[in-house]
Amino acid sequence: MQEELFTSGRNLPHIDPSLEIWHWPISLYLFLGGLAAGLLFFAGLITVLGKEKDYPAAVKYASIISPIALTLGLLALFYDLTHKFYFWRLYTTIRIESPMSWGAWVLLIITPISFLWVFSYYSEIFPKWQLKYENLNKFEKFLKGNRKNMAYALIPLSIILGVYTGILLSAFNARPLWNNAILGPLFLVSGLSTGAATIILLAKTQKEKHLFGKIDLALIVLELGLIVHMLMGMYAGSEVQLEAMQLLVGGEFTMMFFGFVIILGLIAPAILEFLELRGFKIPVAVPAILVLIGGMVLRFVMVEAGQITRYLY
């Protein structure tokens, strides 16, 4: 038996008895960043494939969400900094070893592109509101001509953004729950899945709803596979990983993880989407909203639970 006490009265704010450095803004940002990555990836992909006319929600309507999500996410990140007005220090250096540095630079590039992308569709989304300035109209035309180039940039950038939201956590070897290589791909797939769900919500034609229903179904199956891999990896891991695992399997986060993420957020929407594709009359908004809630809860569970796990010495 071993018992350890701090006797010098160590009670550091937000650190003792367990870490509470990252709060809801980080979880929210990880969700919104993943969502934006998914939306921008599909917008880019559909454009590169030359199918813009067939899938207007993916390239046009849903992409209004991505700059909003990125802006809200960035505000949440900024809100969580404790030395806020030094944030520009992120952009005085590139630290190859730090995922957060990568993320900051990718956000600096992808956020303006997401705005320009929506602006290139301005007159199609808002046909009634003409722009009054000739220069803005010219700029819109210029962007329209360069949509394909933007799409080529968006595909790799959105993948990096999606993976980075997971790698950000997995780079911390001090938190055994986060420290597994599956987290990057898992968050990317989850982000793509929430992106596809948003497109389903905004799609008007049956054809588009069905295509993204199929894509979402495939992504959900992939995500379940990755979660199984994550749990298996931890079961085969060292003692600290086994302890971390306990939080998700038979611990205080089991209800949230299995109930909200796996059952309500993945299995239920997968079944509903499958039945819908088979011809049953199910409003597609139901599985799409479940996927979005599941994606959000996944981020909250991982951020909160990860901070409880540690090396005990």
Partner: peptide, 20 residues
């Protein structure tokens, strides 16, 4: 003067030796 207070280093320390 270079720290932005993001908390990444606090999360990364197995000894919880850093604080804001």
């Amino acid at each position: 003067d270079e720290c932005i207070g993001c908390g990444a280093c606090i999360e990364s320390c197995p000894y919880d030796a850093r604080f804001q």
